[in-house]
């Protein structure tokens, strides 16, 4: 086990350093969700009343945890694209012939992606006071913890996809058919109540729903009622934990196939 620490650390370090050296990635991962939030949040705020939340909760505020989830998703997507590229250019071949094994390789990559996601999600958290959200230090710590869990799961899912793909060509389809709908149907964008039954079910089986719920609960740690009508915190954390483990295992399996 000790033998894994150094390889995992160096793989993690590379993901982080690389990211910092690619300006466009830094800008894209933060600016895109910010623009989404302001345009969609602003545009829908006139017609939207979040159910179950106390009066006065506007759409910008409802949408805020959802946008944090989107930041995490975008970072996971970037990590996925980077992995496909690393495989295409041959960098990961060089890693595969090292005595590390898929457990360590995927763990390093997933921790790298998680770190980047939490750093960017954390930047968004700085906007909370601007919304009039009084987040306590305990709440900030809890939100960051949830972010780590959600980001690790999403990065794991992205890696499980990336290790199976040989080019970024097919990735847009996967992004639009799987990853983006996962976010749309998570309660990030609109709540589950009052939806047609099939959509409500889709939201219930979507692991992201529980990630967003956990984000809402921890953001409103002091005023639980403000979290609105979402699944409770305990089960949400359990679902996200299970999702993270399963996504990691799927990615290890996919990577293991490439190393014969």
């Amino acid at each position: 086990m000790m033998g894994l620490v150094l390889p995992v650390t160096t793989l993690w370090w590379r993901e982080v350093v690389r990211f910092g050296r690619q300006r466009s990635r830094v800008v894209g991962a933060v600016a895109q969700p910010l623009v989404f939030w302001l345009l969609l949040g602003g545009g829908l705020s006139a017609s939207f009343r979040p159910p179950g939340a106390p009066p006065g909760t506007g759409y910008l505020e409802y949408f805020y945890p959802g946008i944090i989830a989107l930041v995490l998703l975008f970072t996971a997507i970037f990590a996925t694209i980077a992995t496909v590229e690393d495989r295409r250019t041959g960098f990961l071949q060089g890693v595969l012939v090292a005595p590390v094994g898929p457990w360590g390789i995927v763990l390093g990559q997933a921790l790298g992606g998680t770190t980047l996601a939490v750093l960017q999600g954390g930047l968004f958290l700085l906007l909370a006071p601007a919304l009039g959200l009084a987040v306590s230090p305990a709440s900030v710590a809890a939100v960051l913890g949830v972010m780590v869990l959600v980001a690790f799961g999403l990065t794991g899912l992205g890696l499980a996809i990336a290790w199976r793909m040989d080019s970024t060509q097919g990735f847009h389809a996967i992004m639009n058919l799987i990853l983006f709908p996962m976010w749309l149907l998570s309660g990030a964008f609109f709540p589950a109540s009052g939806l047609p039954a099939w959509l409500e079910w889709a939201m219930r089986v979507n692991p992201m729903t529980y990630g967003v719920a956990a984000l809402r609960h921890t953001l409103y740690l002091e005023v639980p009622v403000a979290a609105g009508a979402v699944p409770p915190l305990g089960p949400s954390l359990a679902v996200m934990g299970a999702f993270a483990v399963l996504a990691y295992l799927a990615a290890v399996r996919a990577a293991g196939r490439k190393a014969s």
Partner: peptide
């Protein structure tokens, strides 16, 4: 095909590879 990371320096690439080998 080149298996080096273009965004890292020569020494960083080598260090990364060395770490993988302990």
């Amino acid at each position: 095909h080149p298996g080096l990371d273009p965004k890292l320096t020569v020494l960083e690439n080598l260090r990364h590879h060395g770490h993988l080998f302990g």
